[in-house]
Every structure is written in structure tokens, then in C-alpha cells.
Amino acid sequence: MPAPKARGAWTNWSEPGGNRNSTPSYAYLERIMKRLLSVYAWLVFAFLYLPIVVIVALSFNKSRYGVSWTGFTLEWYSRLFANERVLEYLGNTLVVATVSTTVSTIIGTLLAVGLVRYRFRLQNGLRYLLYTTVVVPDIVMGISLLLLFAEVRSLIGWPRLSLLTIILGHISFQIAYVTLVVRARLMLLDPALEEAALDLGANNWRTFREVTLPLISPGVVSGALLAFSLSLDDFVVTFFTSGSGSTTLPLYIYSAVKLGVSPEIHALSTLMVGATILVLVLGVLFWRNRG
């Protein structure tokens, strides 16, 4: 009996196989299955994109209410840009995302290096704390931070709920993601490379600067991007750690949605979806160019 031949992937199924003498041929059935699968998959994709398409379309619709198309307009966009508060919220969102991403990327990268390269007590505890931080529902994190800030404030009169507390909260969940992403990359790195640098006379800092960091930089960049988008996206932790004057875009959308559907929100959503796609596509192109 011939040994079963390795198959690359699902697509290969429909190719006529000369090696099937002894195995029953299901090529016909496979073809049907493949067709069905493809139809099903595209229906799921339609499900994934229907809401996004609807929002984008309605943001250009003249009619304020309902979904019937009454003509093209950019009115909702101009109203959005005329709304100075929205710009302020956008600014807040970006400040929070930038600052928190910077801090969490540095701390998380260092933590990943320490976790992979050194043995110390409580190491497993720390690792499980990271997993837990990633998995535990954000509402638990949000209210526990709220409790912390409230208690500390009642003791020393600081901090007020503000952009600062939001940033502190975001860093707290970003660290775990950055650490785990960078750690995955570090574990692929041959430790002999760092040893070679030490061997050639580079001290620990220069070894890190000249060998470790350049080689894990894809992981660091991925971690930072993930952290950045998590910050932009976060509603729940922000909700519990924000005060008056520290509204971010997700908070604004939430309160606006509570009041009801409006075309300005369609427009804002469309812009945010556009920005997401732009960043992702640029990111993909960037990685592809770097190999």
C-alpha cells in the first residue's frame, strides 16, 4: 500500500491525485464540499461587513432619519468638523493612546526580556498575573481601578479622575499584551546571539541595544500597535476612570448612542473605520516590504 501523501491544504483536494489507487476517491464530494464552504464563508464575510457598509452608506445620506436613500451629502461631515468638542475628544483620545502606548511598550518590552532571560522567584506568579490581566473582563479591571483611585484620593487628595487616571488604567492592561507579544518573539531568538555579543566585549546594555532590540523590534512594533489600538478602542476601563473634562471618542459615541441614532455619529464612525483600514493596510505593506 502506498504511504499516504502529505497534502498542503484544503485547496489541493480537488486536484486529481494519481496516488489514490488504493484509497477511495472522494474528489467529487470534496469539490462539492469546497463549493459549499466557499459560499458559506462569503456569507459570513457579508455578515461581518454588512453593518460597516450600512454605516458608511448612511453617513452620506441626506435623510436624517430612517434608512431610505434620499441623496448624497457631506453635510454630516461638515457638522461633525464644526463640532469643536468632537475635536477635543479626538485630541484626548490620541493623547491617552500615545502616552499610554509609549510607557507600556517600554515597560512591557523590559518585562518580556526579564521573563525570558532570567529565573527568579514569583516568576510563574507574574506570568499568570499577565494571563489573567488579558483574560479578565475589562469591567472588573475598570471598577478595581476606580476603587484604587477613589481610595488613594480620599487619603491624599490626589488623583482626580482625569486623563491621567485614564492613562494609568490603559497602561495597566496594555503592559500584559505588549509583554506577551514581545515574549513570543524573544522566545524565537537564539540566546547564542546575545552570548556572542557579550563574548565580543559588549556589556549588557550594548548587547541589548545592538543585538536584542534590533532582533525583537518586529515584536516590539506589533506590541506597540496592538497597545495603541486597544487604547483607541477602549470604552469600559475609560468609562470608570474618566472624570469631567476627560471625555474620549468612545465615551462620546456611547453617550451619543444612548440618546439615539444620528448621522453625525455615522460620519464619525465612517472616519474611524477608514482610519483603521488605512493603518492596517499601511502596516501590512510595511511588513511585506521588510520581508
Binding site: F45, L48, Y49, P51, I52, V54, I55, L58, V67, S229, L232, D233, F235, L249, P250, I253, Y254, V257, V261, I265, H266, S269, M272, V273, T276, I277, V279, L280
Partner: peptide
Amino acid sequence: MVIIPFFTNFLIRVYAWIV
């Protein structure tokens, strides 16, 4: 195409269903 909705703002995705 799976990652784009993944990174699209969570509130927008929920909001779209209201619409």
C-alpha cells in the same frame, strides 16, 4: 478582512446593529 472588523472600534460595531 477578518482583522479589519477586529480592529474597528467596538462601539461602532455595536452601534451599527442599532441602525
